[in-house]
Design a protein around this nucleic acid. Structure first.
Length: 261
DNA sequence: ATGTCTCCTAAGAGGAGA
């Protein structure tokens, strides 16, 4: 069973890519970010025709997250409970006994921006939310665009990016605090090639030159990590015509020992 | 290297966000 995440930078523009990817990879769940549309404009019919259900938290023009799943997501929760935010960045649901949360973390813009202060506040709220979720759900998966490159090896040019937004010490610290809750970066559970990234700028031929950052992550609880068998980034959709600037990331899991969980 | 893409408003380009 495969679970994946993808910042599609507009679901309406990227729908053909998403449908092709679902058909090829048949994930149990695909966590989407940056829908850039209201739920009323979400392509439910096309997703359902592909054999999938959709739980959507949308808004006009910006942000927006969804859970695309082979079985209906149960106990769907939108947003971070207790954290008032007009921006639709979080949706949670349960599939096959796994609590799955799709997250689109704030970008931050620059270290001096008000958006950066919001990013750190938002991360503090996410931290407390995930702490509570881990107490309730043995098997938890939190996947999406974190807008943080956790280590220098996740950056094509760590010298140029040192201290910049997405790579700053404060951002890396809050990401590390998520791991300290008992979450594991599924990408690092297995040997990976060097210079694997998940996002490349649209400009300057960044993808062809592999000038990228690994800012999309699929974090899993330690219990879930026990049955994680593979993980990675699928670069193929980034090479298509009219691509998202992000590539899908994924992890694979062996069958649950407790099918009723 | 102010480089690209997507959205919006509002009626043609320009701004926001990434």
């Amino acid at each position: 069973m495969k679970i994946a995440a993808w910042n599609v930078n507009s679901i309406r523009v990227r729908l053909p890519h998403v449908l092709a990817w679902l058909a090829q990879h048949q994930p149990l769940v695909l966590c989407l970010q940056e829908l850039k549309c209201e739920a009323s404009a979400f392509p439910f019919a096309e997703i359902e025709a592909a054999g999938y259900y959709a739980a959507v938290a949308g808004q006009k023009a910006y942000n927006g997250v969804a859970l695309i799943s082979k079985e209906p997501a149960l106990d769907v929760v939108v947003g971070i409970p207790g954290f008032n935010d007009e921006q639709q960045r979080v949706i949670a649901g349960t599939c096959a006994g796994v609590r799955v949360i799709s997250v689109y973390c704030p970008n931050g813009e620059s270290l001096t921006s008000e958006k950066y202060a919001y990013k750190l506040r938002w991360y503090a709220a996410l931290h407390d939310y995930l702490k509570a979720e881990l107490k309730q759900h043995t098997e938890l998966l939190v996947a999406g665009d974190y807008n943080i490159a956790p280590e220098d090896r996740d950056v094509y040019d760590p010298v140029a990016w040192k201290g910049e937004v997405l790579c700053s010490d404060a951002e890396r610290a809050v990401f590390s605090q998520l791991l300290q809750l008992g979450l594991v970066d599924s990408f690092r559970l297995f040997a990976q090639e060097d210079k694997i990234y998940s996002w490349w700028h649209y400009r300057v031929n960044a993808f062809k030159r592999n000038m990228g950052l690994r800012i999309d992550h699929l974090l899993i609880s330690t219990a879930l990590s026990q049955r994680c068998t593979a993980s990675g980034v699928d670069r193929a959709p980034r090479a298509l015509e009219r691509p998202s600037d992000h590539a899908p990331i994924f992890a694979e899991f062996s069958a649950s020992s407790n099918p009723n969980s």
